[in-house]
Design a protein around this nucleic acid. Structure first.
Length: 258
DNA sequence: ATGCCGTGGAAACCACGA
């Protein structure tokens, strides 16, 4: 079974790319971020025609998350992180598919830092940690995946020295990610490839993709029951080379069926 | 060191992204 996460950077603007990728790689589950569309403009018909069911949590212009499944039943179990009723950003949706708990998240960017946006990022991170603690302790397998907007270590940045003051790489941000991991979560790609340079994002500027000037910011965290089923993982980096593509590449894990 | 590119939405520019 394949589970993927993909920050599409506009689900309607990138629809041909999304459909081409679904057709080519046929993930059983696809978690999407940055829909940039309100609920009523989610392209459900095209996604159904491609053979997928979907749940989504949209928002006008910004953010937005969705979970797609290839013929599998989706039981939605939550949307929006608990802990702040004033937070109206659509950044989280959670479902159970085939007995697997799947949280799909789009963590705030946080720039410029310091400032209110960075404060919001850290506060969102804290709410995620609180929610994740409960998820981690479940006996069922749990996947917490998406765009974390964090490079966990220097190896995850093409030029770490240029990013030390950026909201994605500041000490507070990396510490927050580390605290999350300390609940017991496994960073699936880093676990499988401890020494590899792996990127999931390449800026549109200055031919960042051609120069492989990338960042690893899209992650799969697995609880113990899920880690036992982990077989392999990867990044569909060639998708980043397509016309009219997102600045992120899709990331995926392959797990045993039971 | 940087929004140089790109999206969405409103208004013919601006907010936002990483």
């Amino acid at each position: 079974m394949r589970i993927a996460t993909y920050n599409v950077n506009g689900v309607n603007g990138r629809l041909p790319v999304l459909l081409r990728w679904l057709e080519e790689t046929k993930p059983d589950v696809a978690c999407l971020q940055e829909l940039k569309a309100p609920d009523e403009k989610f392209p459900l018909q095209a996604i159904q025609d491609a053979g997928y069911n979907a749940i989504w949590h949209g928002q006008k212009s910004w953010n937005g998350v969705a979970i797609l499944t290839r013929g599998l039943e989706i039981q939605e179990v939550g949307r929006a992180l608990p802990g702040d009723p004033e937070d109206l950003h659509s950044r989280y949706i959670e479902a159970v598919v085939n007995g697997i708990h799947i949280g799909c998240l789009y963590l705030p960017n946080g720039n410029p830092a310091p400032g209110p946006k960075f404060d919001y990022k850290l506060a969102w991170f804290e709410r995620l940690r609180q929610h994740a603690a409960g998820l981690y302790s479940l006996k069922q397998p749990v996947v917490l995946c998406g765009d974390y907007n964090v490079m966990p270590q220097e190896i995850d940045v093409y030029k770490p020295e240029r990013w030390v003051n950026d909201a994605l790489f500041r000490p507070e941000t990396r510490a927050a990610f580390q605290e999350l991991l300390e609940q017991g979560w496994t960073d699936a790609l880093r676990k499988l490839y401890p020494e590899e340079v792996i990127y999931t994002f390449w800026d549109y500027f200055r031919d960042a993709y051609g120069r492989n000037a990338g960042l690893r910011i899209d992650h799969f965290l697995l609880n113990q029951a899920m880690e036992k089923r982990l077989v392999t993982a990867g990044v569909d980096r060639h998708v980043r080379g397509w016309e009219k593509t997102s600045d992120h590449g899709p990331v995926w894990i392959e797990i045993t069926d039971k």
